[in-house]
Amino acid sequence: MNIVIYKGNFQYDVVNCFAEELGHELMKLGHNVYILNLVTMSHNKILAILSQNEIGLVLSFNGVNFIEQKIYEGLNIPLGILFVDHPFFHVSRIRAYKGNMTFYCMHDEGFLNSFEECIAEDVPIAWLPHGGTEIVSDESIEKTYDIIMPGTIGDYIQLEKEILNLELDILKRIAINMYEKGKQNYNIPLYHYFKEEIFAEGIELYRLRKDEDFLNAFSYIYTLVDRTLRARNRYRIIKALVDKGLKVHHYGNLANTELKAHKNIITNGPLNYIDLVKEMKRSKFLLHDISYFENGSHERVLTSMLNRTLVLSNNNNYCNNMYIDGENIVYYDMNNLDTLVEKTFYYLEHEDERKVIEENAYRITKQYNTWGSRAHEILNIYNAFLKMKR
């Protein structure tokens, strides 16, 4: 089959690496894959490839695209949109490409529920976790860092002000209540709090599906609260460790002035993804935080495991709960950061136990959670989509 995968202009180049890896894995399965960069190719050139090569499937991460939805319909080409964020971040693209030839994939099963309840209930959707990236080297790489933390750390104080400055009272009330609940208990999906507050205001979720303005407004406050909680919690977990004398190497945008000035934080700014993976490989621990999943995934977790770096993650449900605390991952409780400090020191002092966890994580991730695994899964989703259409 001829398959097109789009690359584009993303905040971080990791998403384009996803496209490259998935494309190469599909090639290994015998498919002819065109990996097209929307930044450097013209609309007409892409249209010519779509119309002249009997394309069987187009894949787009986060819906990056500039070919009109009607073109896919006219050429009878299925378009698979693979979200790497919550669908509330991409409402406009969902709306733009909704059609008979489109299906959507999300990396947390909970996202599927929010999609059907709030965005659209008559659209084909599927669960597709992230995959991990392994850097293979003949040379032994020394673990020169104790802790690495990649990812954006925003200014949560400024984000809190944005919540407080929301103009409509109902939006402000819902956002504040969601934020306070998320601060008190981070071990529950944010969407649970979202629904509680929506229902408390007497609003039925179907109104979001039916009213574009409702959906835009409420998806905005969801994403604002999500970003604020993540910024606050990433600040908290780093500070909990550096205040105990541990050094943390951070890669990514850092907007928190207190952390920038801390003597135990080594700030490096954004780094291209492959170089970042090499830095992960040099670290004993990956420090990780992400909003609580129902059944989700994250590429940094899986990539660290494939490069034999122990993952310190907030309590979560990764990939059908195949990752077990103390066996192939180490979980800390965001509601009690003493657990993070204690476990970090413990596994720094007990290298043999750390290496056992790293090896267990490597084996299970290599078997189930690479981009090769995802290539098989996306083809299964594609075939199910075609069967449904027939």
Rank of each mutant, 00 (worst) to 15 (best):
I5G: 05
N9I: 10
D13S: 15
N16V: 11
C17F: 13
E25A: 08
M27N: 07
M27R: 14
H31Q: 05
L36K: 13
L36Y: 02
G56S: 14
L57P: 06
V58W: 05
L59Y: 01
L59N: 00
V64P: 04
Q69I: 01
I71A: 04
P78R: 04
D85S: 12
I94K: 02
R95F: 11
Y97R: 08
G99A: 04
N100L: 09
M101D: 05
Y104E: 05
D108V: 07
G110N: 07
L112T: 03
A120S: 15
E121T: 03
P124A: 11
W127P: 03
H130R: 03
H130A: 08
D138I: 01
S140E: 15
I148C: 13
P150E: 11
Y156P: 08
E162H: 14
L164N: 15
N165P: 04
I174H: 01
A175R: 06
M178L: 06
K183Y: 06
N185H: 07
P189A: 00
E197H: 03
A200N: 12
E201R: 01
Y206Q: 11
R207G: 00
R207A: 11
D213Y: 09
Y220R: 14
T223F: 07
V225P: 07
V225L: 09
R230D: 06
R234W: 06
R234M: 12
I238Y: 05
K239F: 11
L241I: 12
G252V: 13
E258A: 13
L259E: 05
H262A: 08
P270V: 11
P270M: 12
M280A: 06
M280N: 10
R282V: 10
L286D: 00
L286N: 08
H288Q: 00
N295L: 02
V301P: 02
S304C: 14
L306E: 04
R308K: 15
T309F: 04
N317V: 10
N317H: 14
N317E: 01
Y318E: 00
C319K: 05
N321P: 01
Y332R: 03
D333K: 09
D333H: 09
T344H: 01
R354H: 07
R354Q: 08
Y362C: 09
R363G: 02
W371H: 01
H376G: 08
R390H: 13
